[in-house]
């Protein structure tokens, strides 16, 4: 399946991209993050939340279908 991964704020800065496509088998959020942290070591010490199709999810959530995965650093609105 294909995932669209989106990076925001300090995470876009850490990875030097804002969006990428990733082909993967069905996996948990933590498995996906492991893969991304391996690819972008600078993500490892960052604090962030994960949203799948715009809904916040836990790290044990299983991704089974094509989805938009967003890595969201601490919120700073207002």
């Amino acid at each position: 399946m294909q995932l669209t991964i989106k990076y925001f704020g300090m995470l876009a800065e850490a990875t030097a991209i804002t969006e990428e496509q990733l082909h993967t088998e069905s996996c948990s959020v933590s498995q996906l993050l492991e893969k991304l942290q391996h690819q972008y070591p600078k993500l490892s010490d960052k604090d962030f939340k994960v949203a799948i199709n715009q809904q916040l999810v836990n790290h044990n959530h299983i991704i089974t279908t094509e989805a938009e995965v967003a890595l969201l650093p601490p919120f700073a609105g207002g």
């Binding site: 925001f8 704020g9 300090m10 949203a51 967003a70 969201l72 650093p73 601490p74 919120f75 700073a76 609105g77 207002g78």
Partner: peptide
């Protein structure tokens, strides 16, 4: 409304200093 916006809305802020360096804002 204001407290919920601050806590729940995915908005990010880059605080820019006078020398053009920056840090990331956190509510």
């Amino acid at each position: 409304v204001v407290e919920t916006i601050k806590a729940d809305v995915p908005i990010f802020g880059k605080e820019v200093f006078e020398d053009q360096t920056h840090q990331w804002k956190q509510n």
